[in-house]
């Protein structure tokens, strides 16, 4: 079937088997292999991309469900959200938030999506006061990132990197 969506600012028109997932469309049809296939079950988060700014497990979503939508992958995220993503990527390097690197693109995309959810005041399972302004504590951050597994055990570095990006973004907003 004919499917069209925009990936990292470029419109893509594809003729795809309706069974093709968004993840396989990106990896196998567009050659954007930065999004990883860790489980193909929505259990590990390695395939996380942003669809219309919201994080999505691309392996759990069919390409055909995204007609006309804007998709951002690790390959384009530094251009699409320069403040947060570029800062986060540099902080991931500085805090050594990776070993094998296979979960890394998903961690980055997920964190960018998560930070915007937090800015919009979305609550999480550990939010104690739903009426108070949301403070992105370490508990809030790790709760919201727990859908992105890292078997190498780089969580402490990833968390530090995300906090750095979060603080940079806060100061950006204040400056603006």
């Amino acid at each position: 079937m004919q499917i069209s969506f925009t990936v990292n600012g470029t419109r893509q028109d594809m003729e795809l088997d309706p069974r093709v997932t968004l993840l396989d469309a990106l990896r196998d049809h567009l050659g954007l292999t930065g999004s990883k296939k860790g489980c193909d079950h929505g259990q590990c988060g390695a395939c996380t991309v942003l669809v219309e700014g919201r994080r999505v497990n691309a392996c759990l979503s069919l390409a055909a469900m995204h007609e006309g939508e804007e998709i951002t992958t690790i390959e384009g995220i530094a251009q699409t959200s320069p403040d947060t993503a570029a800062t986060l990527q540099q902080a991931m390097i500085d805090y050594d938030g990776m070993q094998c690197g296979y979960c890394t693109p998903g961690q980055v995309c997920s964190a960018v999506g998560m930070l915007s959810e937090a800015r919009e005041g979305w609550p999480s399972h550990v939010t104690e006061d739903l009426d108070a302004p949301l403070e992105l504590t370490r508990d809030e951050l790790t709760e919201r990132m727990s859908g992105n597994l890292c078997r190498c055990g780089c969580y402490p570095g990833i968390v530090k990197a995300i906090r750095t990006a979060s603080e940079a973004r806060t100061s950006d907003s204040e400056a603006a």
Binding site: I93, D96, M98, Y102
Partner: peptide, 21 residues
């Protein structure tokens, strides 16, 4: 020192076994 392959990994440019066509 920084991991030699860190930038490739954070930008999705590190290429694993199943990733060429």
């Amino acid at each position: 020192t920084e991991r030699r392959d860190a930038r490739q990994k954070v930008t999705g440019r590190a290429t694993y076994a199943a990733e060429i066509r």
